[in-house]
Each structure stands twice: as C-alpha cells, then as structure tokens.
Amino acid sequence: MIILKWTQFVIGTCLLFLGILTFLVQIFGVFKFKYVLNRMQAAAMGDTLGIGISLVGLMVISGLNFTTLKLGMVVIFLWCSSPVSSHLIARLEAATNPNLDKFCEVDENIRKVLDKEYEENIIERKDS
C-alpha cells in the first residue's frame, strides 16, 4: 500500500512540475515574441497544455473521489473555452491587419474570404 501511495505521489508531482515547466515556456514565449499571433500561440499553449498537465497531476495525487471529477470538469471547461478565445483574437487580428502577408503566409482562399468580409463591412458602414 505504501509503495502504491508513493508512486501515486511521485507521478502526480512529476506531472505538476511538467505543467509548471510548460507555464515557464509560455511566459518566456509571450515576452520573447513580438507579433500578436506568435505571442498568442505561446499563451494558448500554457492555457491548454500546461493547465491540463498540472490538473491531471493534481487528479493523480487526490486519487479516486469527487474532487477528481470536479478537476476533470475544470479541464474540459478550460479546453473548450481557451482555444475559442485564442481563435477570436486571431480572427480579429486577421480582420484588422491589412499587411498580414508580411508576418505570415496567407492562403489564397482565406485572403479572398477576408477581402470579401472587409468590403462587406465597409459597405455596411457606409449604409449606416
């Protein structure tokens, strides 16, 4: 029993430290990169991978009980909400930056969609 508890503790702590390491990489990336999309990618990595690993570590430490279920639900919630917020930021950047080609490769089809959306917006703005 003692060996089982110790392995549980060691695995949980290792996962927790791995999560903290991911957070450190995230913070480094956020301050190192200059462009919005790069920084956003680094930040989103911490919000999904880092917090996922940390909470799985906590789940392993706490064992099979109601707290584990709650932590699992927190992980599901964060994995649903965090990528969506990143997606919205990226979409706003793509919609507002006319020189997007300078920073990253833009597929032709996406370029067309963006241009069309921009024109629609301008027409809408003139109407109102």
């Binding site: 649903c80 909400s81 969506v84 997606h87 919205l88 979409r91 706003l92 919609a95 507002t96 917006n121 809408e124 703005r125 109102s128």
Partner: peptide
C-alpha cells in the same frame, strides 16, 4: 455596430461552444 466593426460576427465556432 460601429464599436464592433471589426469583430467577427456570427462566428460559428464561438456560437457552437
């Protein structure tokens, strides 16, 4: 409308989530 000029409107991913 002017305030949310550049905001993605009716974003299907956001609506689904």
């Amino acid at each position: 409308r002017r305030d949310s000029f550049y905001e993605p409107k009716n974003d299907s991913i956001l609506q689904m989530i």
